[in-house]
Design a protein around this nucleic acid. Structure first.
Lengths: 255, 255
DNA sequence: GAGTGGTCTAGACCACACG
DNA sequence: GTGTGGTCTAGACCACTCA
C-alpha cells in the first residue's frame, strides 16, 4: 500500500539472481534491533505496542508482529499478553539458567552463590586480544570468582573483560551487587549479553583450582571456555570456567 | 466460521480460570504430530500442501501455516519454498551436526568416520532400565563404536538400545551401512530421534578407552551421557561417549 | 472499560522449483 | 504455466492485565 520505511528491494544491480532480497518484516526487525543497540529501549523496559509500531513504520500490525516474533524467539524480547512487549533482561531468572548449564547430578535445583575472589587490570595477550577483538596490549579487566552450589564450590571462573568498557569494575562492586554477573554488567555498564559460544574440554586440575574446588591436583575437571556477545555480535567477555563434576554436570539439550 | 475438526474449547467446566485452552493451530499441530508418530508420513517424504491441509482440516491456510511453523522450528518438519514441506530426516547432514557437537580445536571441519567395534545382547541393569523406561532384565542391545575425525580416534561410544525395537542389530549391518547411526535407525528400524539430553563430566580414562583413543590411562576425558527421544518423548537410546579433548572440543551455543 | 498481545480468517501478490 | 511455500494486508474477535 502506502510508501514504507525503506525500499522493498535493495537494488540487486549485480548479476546474481536474487542477491539481497529482504522481506519487509526483516527490515522492521533491523530497525527494532537498531533501537535496542542504541539503548533507546533499555533491558526490562516495554517497547511501544504493536499497533503503535505499525503506524510509526507504516506497515500492517501483522508485519510488526512477525518481526517481534523472531526477536522473541531469539530471546531479545519478551512478550507478555495483556501487558506489552519487553526488552529481555538478565534480571530474569530464565536468562540465568540459559547461561549456566551446571546442574546437580542428583537432579533438582540448588541455591547458587557467586563469590568474587580477585579483580585486577592487565594488558591483553594474544589469545584474549583475538577472542575479544582487541589489540595486543589493550587494557583488560580480569575477575576471578568461585561459584557455589548449596554452599559447595563447583566452578572457578576467570573472566576477561575489555578495559575500555569494564575498566571501572572493582571487587567491592562485585561483592556488593545482588544478582548475577550479567545482571551486574547490564545495570552498571549498560552491556547486555545476548549470546555465547562455549568450548568444552576435560583437563587435569592445577594446584590452585584443585584447592579451591576441594579436589585432588591432577584430577579431571571440565574446562568451559566461553565468548559472550552483545548486540551486533560484538564479543565483550571471554571466560574460562573449571567445573568440578563429582557431584554436578553440564547439562545440554539437543533438538 | 464453519465447524472445525474439534471443539474450539475443550470444556473448562472446572473452577480454574482457563485450564486447558488450546488454540486451533495447536490442535492442528497435534493432528499433524499424530500423523508423524503413526508413520503415515515417513522421514524425507513430503506432507500435503498447506492449502490441502487447510481444506482437509476445515481451517484457514494461515492456521495450518502457524502449526507447521512451530514444527519446523522444532526441526520436525522442513520447509522448502517452491517444493513443499518435508518430514525431517537424519539423512540431512544438518541433523548430523545438531547431534554431534565435537569439533576440531583448530576450527574448520574434518571428515568423520564411525567404526563399529562390537555388538551384543544383554539384560537391562537398573541404570539402563531407568534411562530407557524398561524393566530390569528386559533385553537390550549394546553397541560399541569408535568415532574418528580425519582418521584419528576421538570418541568411544557405548550405546544401549531397547532389544524390543533394536534386537535385530548386528555388527555386520552397522559396518555395511553408509550414513550416520541415526540415519541407520531411521531406515532399518523406522525410529526417528527428535531430541536428546546430554550430561557432561570430566573423568579419568580407563585402560580400554585410553588404548582406543591413544591417550594415557587416567588422563582426563570428557564423558558425554545422552538419552535420545523419539516421538511422544519416548526414550529409545542411552549412550555414553568418552571424548579425547586434546585436539577436539565439545562446542555449544547459548542463546 | 481500555489497552495489549494472541488467534483466525480471506484474499492478494511474490519468490521459487519443475516440467 | 502450475503448484508450492513466503509475504503482506485488513479486519474481527478472544484472552489477559490493570485501573
Amino acid at each position: 500500500m502506502g510508501s514504507n520505511v525503506m525500499a522493498a528491494k535493495e537494488a540487486p544491480v549485480g548479476t546474481t539472481p536474487s542477491p539481497t532480497f529482504s522481506p519487509l518484516y526483516r527490515q522492521i526487525k533491523s530497525l527494532l534491533m537498531q533501537r535496542l543497540e542504541s539503548g533507546e529501549w533499555r533491558p526490562g523496559e516495554a517497547i511501544p505496542s504493536e499497533s503503535e509500531l505499525a503506524i510509526r513504520f507504516n506497515v500492517s500490525q501483522g508485519t510488526v508482529r512477525k518481526a517481534i516474533d523472531e526477536m522473541a524467539a531469539e530471546n531479545l524480547l519478551l512478550r507478555r499478553q495483556g501487558k506489552g512487549t519487553f526488552v529481555a533482561s538478565h534480571d530474569d531468572p530464565r536468562a540465568f539458567f540459559r547461561f549456566l548449564r551446571a546442574v546437580p547430578l542428583t537432579g533438582g535445583i540448588e541455591p547458587t552463590e557467586s563469590v568474587p575472589l580477585e579483580c585486577w587490570r592487565a594488558k591483553a595477550g594474544p589469545e584474549v586480544a583475538r577472542m575479544l577483538e582487541l589489540n595486543i596490549g589493550d587494557p583488560i579487566t580480569i575477575v576471578r570468582r568461585l561459584l557455589k552450589f548449596a554452599g559447595k564450590p563447583v566452578v572457578v571462573d576467570e573472566i576477561y573483560l575489555p578495559g575500555s568498557v569494564f575498566g571501572a569494575v572493582t571487587l567491592e562492586m562485585l561483592r556488593d551487587y545482588k544478582g548475577s554477573l550479567y545482571s551486574f554488567f547490564e545495570h552498571q555498564f549498560g552491556i547486555r549479553m545476548i549470546r555465547a559460544e562455549e568450548r568444552l574440554r576435560a583437563v587435569p586440575a592445577d594446584r590452585a583450582s584443585a584447592d579451591l574446588l576441594n579436589v585432588a591436583e591432577g584430577s579431571p575437571l571440565l574446562s568451559v571456555e566461553r565468548v559472550s556477545f552483545s548486540y551486533a555480535d560484538k564479543p565483550v567477555e571471554w571466560r574460562r570456567g573449571l567445573y568440578s563434576t563429582n557431584e554436578h554436570c553440564y547439562f545440554n539439550e539437543l533438538g
